[in-house]
């Protein structure tokens, strides 16, 4: 039996549920693996895990938000033969990764304004926050399985990898980014008929009655689909909700936020550029109030924008 450890970091629980929902496939995996740690699923002690000499497969879920997270991630990963970053937080920092813009102390200070408990004191035994980061900022995992939560497509691929590894003891590649290496526009169920995307301005969802057969961008609604990796089968888009980019960039290491900014700039009011004077154009662009939150909702921590933030003055 191979040893499988599932380590949660700063997590919402979605990844746990997704992994548990594997159901029969999980049972198949358990023919080869023993779960040596997974807080929500099995009753195993962390101390035992820490004492183990090696772990075969480590699945890390969530972002790294505390010293404890960081320590576990580092120490346990060192013992693991295969490291899996599961979920967008683990791969790209996810939503918690947006916190990387602020110093941990400032985050605590902000939270203090909202709750009564005194948070600064370590006397409570509260974990100490660190600059929020992705699991991939600590180690270079062999398997990257993004998704918020990870989709069936990604989990099926992961299952396949785990089973193959159990049988062969080998991985197909040094780094594997799961999902399909294309953006969501490929095979988009909206299957647009027009040849151009003339984005008629920027609209919020409540401002427009969405045509469920028409490209979101053509209706003025920002959709991250063009720059987002196809880790899913378009559930949001089928539900008439635009992609917000949880799949991350199409290629590992590229920056979907900058790509999407460029694409958006190209198609926005493309037929009216000359009619509008610059303030008119600017007015539309100003409707994007929060550039980072819009284009980097899930991927800020691994982006060039974050690197620039560090360059500009570290934390703060």
């Amino acid at each position: 039996m191979l040893k499988l450890a599932v380590i949660p970091g700063g997590i919402c629980g979605g990844c746990d549920v997704a992994l548990a929902s594997l159901g029969e496939k999980l049972a198949e995996i358990l023919k080869y693996y023993e779960i040596v740690y997974w807080p929500i699923a099995v009753d195993k002690k962390l101390s035992n895990l820490m004492n183990m000499n090696h772990i075969d497969v480590l699945i890390y879920m969530g972002a790294i938000t505390t010293e404890e997270d960081a320590k576990l991630a580092k120490e346990l990963s060192a013992k693991a033969r295969v490291r899996v970053a599961l979920g967008t937080c683990s791969v790209y920092g996810g939503i918690p990764g947006l916190n990387a813009l602020y110093k941990p102390a400032d985050i605590i200070k902000t939270i203090s304004l909202l709750v009564d408990t005194k948070l600064e004191s370590s006397a409570l035994g509260l974990p100490q926050p660190v600059q929020h980061m992705a699991y991939t900022d600590v180690v270079e995992p062999e398997v990257l399985a993004p998704g918020c939560p990870p989709t069936d497509k990604v989990l099926d691929q992961l299952t396949e990898i785990l089973l193959n590894y159990a049988k062969s003891g080998k991985l197909e590649a040094r780094t594997m980014l799961l999902g399909d290496s294309e953006s969501l526009c490929n095979n988009c169920p909206r299957n647009p008929k027009t040849t151009k995307i003339a984005m008629p301005g920027i609209k919020r969802l409540y401002e427009v009655k969405l045509d469920s057969n028409k490209c979101f961008l053509e209706q003025g609604v920002l959709c991250m689909g063009p720059a987002t990796r196809a880790i899913c089968t378009h559930p949001c888009i089928k539900f008439n909700y635009p992609c917000i980019g949880c799949g991350g960039p199409v290629e590992w290491g590229s920056d979907s936020g900058l790509s999407m900014i460029s694409t958006l700039a190209s198609v926005l009011l493309v037929d009216d550029e000359k009619k509008l004077l610059e303030p008119g154009l600017a007015r539309e662009l100003n409707k994007i109030r929060d550039v980072l939150g819009t284009f980097y909702k899930y991927t800020l921590r691994k982006s060039k924008a974050y690197a620039l933030k560090n360059k500009a003055g570290g934390e703060g």
Binding site: I261, A265, L281, L285, V291, L292, Y306, G313, G316
Partner: peptide, 29 residues
Amino acid sequence: PNDCHYVAGNFKAFKRVYLLKKLLQEVGV
């Protein structure tokens, strides 16, 4: 509006730069 040798590349630049400036501001540049 009319000088661009390639019709309207300048407008694309304008929009990109406009959004990028907002991004720069947000990351402290």
